[in-house]
């Protein structure tokens, strides 16, 4: 990873942080409804892994904490924000919301809101890739708590059995909603849980994007070379509650401080400053530029976008005018 890449990734992560913080504000202002699961603290995971893969080419799927993964795949942040605003210009035309960001053009295959649901979907995409003979891989991002669903085990078994090109990335943020991992899960180290399926795995510091990138490169290469599935566990932390309805009262200030001291953005920023590649003024200017872009372009786009037409509320339930519904004759 060269200096230009590191600076770009710093900007991308800072953008992700500011984007999510602005979502929080819009939610408080009641411009965004429903559930909202934010990503601050975990930025190095999505950015480090996808930097090592081919965003827009590889198929990516995740849970409901999905805004940043979509954007890193190439989704237009304006459309993501418009989706949160429920507008027709949103990435899912206002039908999906925060938990269901999709950008199929950039092969971001969706955010899904049933914990563990994407595990088999990712394996299925990998099966399709294999059948069609492409060099893409499927990448599935989920949290540690999803690994207690049956789909985790069912999917790992099938992925190994059929040698499918799928990378499972576990963003281990230590909490399943408000329950700490040691209170819900018999084995804390998630990468150990896949050994029963003979799938290679690794655990890495999810706060240091350079480490994430290196571990992900190895994982991606393994999967892309046809050697079958891989499981990468990234140790990370979310700064906010699970969603906006979460009071976040179950974690100690001390624990939160411990993790914010290892903030992925600050880590990379300080490393660049120490190396003489970046000044504090550069960083401040970058931040200002991002904040202006979010306000002037992204929020402005979402706010000025039209609502979906109510007379189109039933659209997209079923395929329109599919001839096979009528026996192919019409």
């Amino acid at each position: 990873m060269n200096v230009a890449d590191k600076k770009r990734l710093l900007r991308e992560m800072l953008f992700a942080r500011r984007f999510e913080e602005r979502c929080y504000e819009a939610y408080v202002e009641r411009k965004i409804g429903g559930f909202l699961h934010l990503y601050p603290g975990e930025e190095a995971c999505a950015h480090g892994v996808l930097e090592a893969a081919r965003p827009g080419h590889d198929y990516v799927i995740t849970g409901y904490r999905d805004h940043i993964h979509a954007i890193k795949c190439g989704a237009d942040p304006k459309k993501v924000m418009a989706e949160l605003y429920g507008r027709e210009t949103g990435s899912s035309r206002g039908r999906g919301g925060s938990m269901h960001i999709f950008d199929v053009e950039h092969r971001f295959m969706g955010g899904y809101a049933l914990v563990g649901g994407p595990f088999p979907l990712a394996a299925g995409m990998a099966k399709a890739i294999k059948m069609k003979g492409g060099d893409e891989i499927a990448i599935c991002f989920l949290g540690d708590a999803a690994n207690n669903q049956g789909t985790f085990h069912e999917s790992l078994n099938m992925a190994k059995l059929w040698n499918l090109p799928v990378l499972y990335v576990c963003e281990n943020n230590l909490y399943g909603i408000g329950t700490r991992i040691d209170r819900s899960t018999a084995v804390i180290d998630q990468y150990k849980r896949v050994s029963g399926y003979d799938i290679p795995s690794a655990q890495e510091d999810g706060q240091d994007i350079e480490k994430v990138f290196k571990a992900a490169k190895k994982a991606v290469n393994h999967v892309r070379s046809g050697k079958g599935p891989y499981f990468l566990e990234l140790m990370t932390y979310r700064y906010r509650g699970h969603s906006m309805s979460d009071s976040n009262a179950y974690r100690s200030k001390n624990e939160e401080r411990m993790w914010s001291d290892r903030d992925p953005i600050i880590l990379l920023r300080d490393r660049l400053i120490e190396a003489g590649e970046l000044t504090k003024a550069d960083y401040k200017a970058m931040d200002t530029e991002i904040l202006d872009e979010i306000e002037d372009e992204i929020i402005a786009f979402a706010e000025s976008s039209p609502e979906p037409r109510v007379d189109e509320v039933e659209k997209y339930t079923l395929a329109e005018n599919d001839p096979w519904v009528y026996g192919g004759g019409r």
């Binding site: 198929y59 799927i61 295959m109 649901g117 595990f119 088999p120 979907l121 990712a122 394996a123 299925g124 995409m125 990998a126 099966k127 399709a128 890739i129 059948m131 069609k132 499927a138 049956g150 789909t151 069912e154 999917s155 078994n157 099938m158």
Partner: peptide, 14 residues
């Protein structure tokens, strides 16, 4: 549930 989901995921790609 696993193989039904796998089939659905495969169907996303045609």
């Amino acid at each position: 549930n696993g193989y039904t989901g796998l089939g659905i995921g495969a169907s996303f790609l045609g």
